[in-house]
Design a binder for these strands. Sequence first.
DNA 1: AGCACGCCGACT
DNA 2: GTCGGCGTGCTC
Length: 828
Amino acid sequence: MMESGKNFADIILPVPIPRMFTYKIPKNLASEIQIGARVIVQFGRKKILTGIIGKVHNKPPQAYDAKPILEVLDDQPSVNPLQIRFWVWMASYYCCHIGEVMHAALPSGLRLSSESKVQANPNFDRENAAYPMDEREDKILDALENQAELSYEDCEKILGVKTIHPILKSLVAKEAVLIFEKVQEKYSPKIETRVRIKAEIASDKNALEAVFDGLAGKAKQESILLKYLRDVPVFKNIKLNEKGVDKATLLEEGDSESSLKTLIKNGVFESFKVVVNRIEEMEPEKEPAKLSDSQELAVGEIHKHFEEKQCVLLHGITGSGKTEIYIRLIQEVLESGSQVLMLLPEIALTTQIVSRLQQVFGSKMGVYHSKYSDNERVEVWNGVLSGRFSFVVGVRSSIFLPFDSLGLIIVDEEHESSFKQFDPAPRFQARDSAIMLAYFHQAKTLLGSATPSFESYFNALQEKYGYVQLHQRYGEAQLPQYHLANLSADRKKNLLKLDSTRLMREKIQDALSKNEQVLIFQNRRGYSPYIQCEDCGWTGQCVQCDVSLTYHQFAEEMRCHYCGYKEKVPSSCPACGSTQLSTMGMGTERIEESLSMLFPEARMGRMDLDTTRNKYGYQRLLEEFGAGQIDILVGTQMITKGLDFGRVTVVGIWDGDRILNFPDFRAGERAYQQITQVAGRAGRRATQGEVIIQTRNPDNDIFEKVIKGDYYEFFRQEMMERKKFYYPPYVKLVKITTRHADFKTTEKAANALHREMAQIPVKKIVLGPEKALIGRIKNQFQFESLIKLDRSGSTQTSFKERLAEILEDLQSRPEFRSVRWIVDVDPS
DNA sequence: AGCACGCCGACT
DNA sequence: GTCGGCGTGCTC
């Protein structure tokens, strides 16, 4: 429309090649071409892909002849110009290809699927064929006489063979069939069949009475009619009949479909189909809670900061009532006509906070969850596009939804590491990207946390962000009381029982006898311990990766956490033959077992990856725990989210040392956050909660800081270290992993990269390459380089631009052709 | 990433 | 002799 006169378009395609692709705009499509519209193009010899128009221009490509755009799918672009700008920014900031960003951004339901189909060649005369057909070929041709088109799969089924290609190839050569690509929208709207009384009967009392008379003695039909009139009182309001009722609902109470069919046949009812929303309509049912004085105050402060700052950090301890503040701000922005996006970590999304928001905002709020089906995602996407949803709560990928006028982005629990995508590319940090997105929209960003990330807190202290602190705990809840339980001391005094200290046992017992609930935290991500030979020290190793296999009691197997390899537990040690194999370390599964031995009367529950894998596992555990059917709940990170139950008075951290010992500059920060978050689950109502931390290092500084709740002091100390050793936020990190199946090649490639990077003339430190902590994964060796860049934007841009050239150059050298480089900007 | 082309082992 | 293994080269 607006772009007439231009005859080439650069198309974004979902392929990992670092550029857009130039296609010709056919004359007949010129009027439909718009930036952000979806198009269909041929890519390579066979593939049909959905692309997005990124740019239109008049420059014919020099080196090749551009193929034409085959079709334009949208009359309203699916992607708006702001999004394209955002994609381009993301690809350059996170050193990935725009196609990879597109892949992450578009729900796959908006992409088209293409399937090869076979049809009979209309110019082919079977009777007078030039070549003879064999039996199998004849069978296919027979089938094509009854059915206009067959998929490859259909053909395979007809013949009962696995590879159909050779046969079809031969048929094509004999000009008996044609192969074509059938392109289909993947998204299918949900269609409901509804029924209603025919208009002429519904509007005429006498006609309706006549119908009733006619049904005398036909009880089944009569019952359906009566039920319909009960649900749809057409006497009171004739208009109601127009909408009818859902057929399935009408028949729910056991009436038969055949009776309804008769009624339709006799012209009493008619059935019709409508497209319905998968995401249910919902009216708001609650007024938002009235804000407390301190909340009111915080809202005022946030407003004030927003007058001059783009971003505000809301620092409020657990239970201080951040949600009510969010609700107020969201309402204000919605009333002003702008959109709002709220990001939550994955696990927090399944919980109370969402239903609370839903009660206030009803169905103008969309939810974007990773457990949603493709069709549901497309509906949220289209809902944002059409204005049905002006507010979305979602996981990190919801930053890609097609907003066109955001006024506010809220990132709750902004310190959560799950906002960073590790794999695959784009390896983006959703919180940071959200701030950029807000900038593109001229919107504001509010970061909320009880334990802010050091980056955000640093920015707040530097007055780059506004800073608002919420002091009071909501209601009367008090801060918990901490206890350090000394594992070493108890071991010496022989007080350890199944790895629990005496103090831990006493506190749990106390709680149980008062009919209170206990949470036990162990950050061994749902995995069970490993198996070791007591005689020779053998442990099961993965055959493809340099890691020990973890023991899964449930399945009696040992599994690799990195590649999924698994084997049965041997009955004797494969190295020395000893039968003394024992389980080492502690996973949630093992702790659950130990505790049920120590407290046989207590009802146990476990919440980790293994018990919540299916859609309702998490919900069910939450409900059981909420209903008091579980006394002790053992779990991983998951239990730190969304559990808000008043009867938890004791929280135990099983292995405090595991939290401290992370080989990473963020270890301290994470430990502080984790302990504080877990502790926040204790005693949320009037009683003071107790937190027991088992450790061999009760003197560790972090514990002292956590117990005092002295975030600032802890931050200050850590910052001195980070400054001294050049770590974020004083520098920007880029991590590059070099991967290849051959050790020597990997090492050589990593060294070559190092030499090239060292030449880049910007302020930086290049560390490594070093063999990665896990030297081999899925039979691929890996080396890591770490680059510390000066914080200035120009340093980062020039480094990244040059890095892209270097990588392309290295990749083209024959010896490194099959080497893979993975760039991770701002790794976490 | 796919997907085709191309050159060497184990099967009818 | 062929089927098919995966090395490698290309995609507007």
